[in-house]
Design a protein around this nucleic acid. Structure first.
Lengths: 240, 240
DNA sequence: CGCGGGTTTGAATGAGTTCAATCACGGTGG
DNA sequence: CCACCGTGATTGAACTCATTCAAACCCGCG
């Protein structure tokens, strides 16, 4: 529950009670192995899922195998809040790492939230942020070069992780293969690799088996025109 | 109000009363000339806008002039429902054609909606649809070829217009230059032109100064893998 | 040791861009 | 009525960024 609390409580002071009411809701904890599906395409979901630990992706596979990742889901992400009776999932969700999930009935969740204005406001903010992230993704893959795309996404993930862990560091632990980057950014794996090599050569980042270190955040942000404001993290007490 | 009513009432039987309460809300009607800005980037908006007539775009301009259109907004679109006190617009909104807008105070709107469960549900559905459209846009520009992109967007706009006008025709009135297509799809104007020419040659569409006619919907949908379900128009009584 | 997943590198290819010229068309002013 | 714009569409040629294919490499693991 901690990550969700961080995420949701980020925008609104929830106080003890209203958040407790969420965690008290009947639920099941499930786990998924890396690569396992959480929501299949076409499935009718009447659950809300909350990621407790691990990474997941929302994506779409085209007939000939091309894959587009729509967004990354980090701990605290809650998804399919939107789905109800008739809505069929138009995208699939899969675990990237081992994932621990909390699953609640949509109806319970909606009722709990709608009864508590503070909670409702908090989730409203979460939805604002999520839409902004989608829009930014559109700009990224629509009009940015490979180098900009990769850098921009790295900086976004870095910030989003920072928001969860409540401290901003220069090291990004990326527990997944470059193919995910490729499919998120609309690039080929080969080109992602080349681009990372170039970024290394320019002294922006350094890589190690464990992840990627950001060496020159300012130059990098400047280069790829990253402005973290769309993440709406202002209220976060971070070293900026 | 008609377009909004169509759009919102699409999913939920609103009944007379609950929708009336929306139209009765204090508001201003404004108009914008083609190209005029409706919401500037960075602006703090505490209004909800509803497009009564005309087309608008939500977009982002990068420093060097590249532009990415995030989505098209048709009559009945309501936007910046999400914005509140602190949120600054991270994208601009402009009129494409002459646009007539209804502007209401966010607070009034929110209150009206939250007091009426049916309205709230209806707007919930609108939000679901809008998110799905954004996701589809991501897949489109991330992993589809130019030909697929153009066709897919044409079919989407065709359907969305059909939903507003309550009848599906093969003729799409596109009152804007190809540059908009280019900037929506992450392509150059030149290439959009070439692609349209190719589609014409293949007998999928025909163009005239007034717009574009879809000649072979099925083949086109098949070719670009267009599946209208993400628009959630099932309940619409359309010839399909 | 050899296998397998992921990364890197090179060379060839290709889809889409850029630049520049031409065309089509509607509006304006002489 | 016609010359002259200006905006947007189209076409051609050169170019470039990114893809594809294929080989090599790296490394952890059975």
């Amino acid at each position: 529950m901690k990550p969700l609390r961080n995420r949701v409580g980020h925008y609104v002071d929830l106080g003890q009670e209203s958040f407790e009411s969420l965690s008290a809701l009947p639920h099941r904890i499930e786990t998924r192995r890396p690569g396992e599906e959480i929501v299949a395409i076409g499935e009718t979901v009447d659950y809300v899922f909350v990621i407790e630990t691990g990474w997941a992706i929302r994506y779409r596979i085209l007939d000939d195998g091309r894959r587009q990742i729509v967004n990354f889901m980090l701990p605290g992400a809650c998804f399919d809040m939107m789905s109800m009776a008739y809505a069929k999932a138009d995208h699939a969700v899969s675990a990237v790492t081992e994932v621990r999930l909390r699953r609640l009935k949509s109806a319970d969740f909606l009722k709990a939230v709608s009864m508590r204005p503070k909670l409702a406001t908090a989730f409203w903010w979460v939805a604002i942020q999520e839409e902004a992230i989608l829009r930014e993704q559109i700009v990224r893959i629509g009009r940015r070069s490979a180098k900009e795309r990769v850098s921009h996404l790295l900086l976004e993930l870095n910030r989003r992780i920072a928001a969860i862990e409540e401290k901003l560091t220069d090291f990004i632990n990326l527990p997944f293969p470059q193919a995910l980057f490729a499919d998120a950014l609309g690039l080929s794996v080969v080109h992602v690799s080349r681009t990372l090599t170039k970024l290394k050569a320019e002294g922006m980042i350094s890589t190690s088996p464990e992840g990627i270190e950001i060496l020159d955040r300012d130059r990098m942000a400047e280069m790829c025109d990253f402005d973290s404001r769309y993440l709406h993290l202002e209220r976060l007490k971070l070293v900026d």
